[in-house]
Amino acid sequence: MWEISAGIFMGWSLGSNDSANIFGTGVGAKIIRYRTAIVLISIFVILGALLEGEKCFATVGELSTLDHRMAFFTALSAAIVVSFFTFSGIPVSTSQAVIGAILGAGLHSGGMVDFSKKYKIVICWVLTPAGGALISFLLYHLIGRLANRFLKNPVLRDTFIRWGLIFAGCFSAYALGSNNVANVTGVYVGSGVLIPFMGALIGSLSITLGVLTYSRKVMETVGKKIVALDGYSAFIAELSAAIVVQIFTQVGVPVSTSQAIVGAVAGVGLVKGIRAVSLRSLIEIGVGWISTPLSGGAVCYVLLFFLL
C-alpha cells in the first residue's frame, strides 16, 4: 500500500490549489468565511468522488497498463510537476500532468500506450475552456434577463447572487471531486492497487486534506485577483465552469477545473466586449496543453529510467 503515498501527495497538492477556483471569489469578497468555504468544499468533493468518481477512472486506467511500482512513479511524477509549477506561480492542470505522466510511463515500458484514447482526451481539454466560455456567455444573458425583471431590489439581488455563488461553489466542489479524483488515484485503480470505491474515497480524502491544510493563501490570492469581477459575473463564471467539468465527468474524461474557470471568465468578458478577455490567460492555457503533459511525461520517463 506504500505506493498510494504519491497519490495522496498528488491529492493534497490538487486540493490546496484547486479550492481557490471554487470559493476564491467568495472568500476574497467576504461573502463566505474561509472556514465555512473549506468545510463545504470538503463535503462536496467527497460526495462528488464517491457518487460519480468512478466514471473517470476507466479513462485513466485504459490509457496504459501499469504495475504497482509504475503507478507510484506516475503519480509521483505528476505531483512533482504540479508542485513545481505551482511554486513557480505558473497555472497548471493536474489532469494534464497525470495523463502526461501515464504516457511517459507507457513509453518507458515500450508500446503500452493506447494513443487512440489520447485524442478523445485532447479534444476534451480543448473543449473545456471553449465550453466554459460558451456556457457562461449564454447563462450571463439568460439569467441576467430574469434577474433584471424579477430582482430589482438591490438587497434581494445581492442575496440571490450570494446564494448563487455558494450554490455554484458547492456544485464546483462536487464536479471537482467527481472529475479530478481520477487524477489522484486513477493510476492505482487502473493497476489494481485499489478498487474504484477505495480509489474514490482515498482520492477525495487526500484532496480534502489539501483543502483543509494548505488552501488559505492561494484562495485569498485568487480572491483578490478576481475581486474586480462583479458578483454576478463571478457567479456565472463559477456556475458555467462547474457545468462544463460535470459534463466531462459524464463523458469520463478528467479535465482542468482551472482552465474551465478561465474559459468561463473569458465568456463573461465576451459579453462586455472582446477587450475584456485576458489574452495572456488564453495563451497560458494553450501553452499548458503542450507543456504540462510533456513535463509530466518527461519527469516520469526520467524517474523510471534511473530508478527502475
Binding site: A29, D230, G231
Partner: peptide, 9 residues
C-alpha cells in the same frame, strides 16, 4: 466593509 453587499456595489 465587514461584508455587506458585493464588492463593487
Amino acid at each position: 466593509y465587514r461584508g455587506a453587499f458585493l464588492p463593487i456595489f
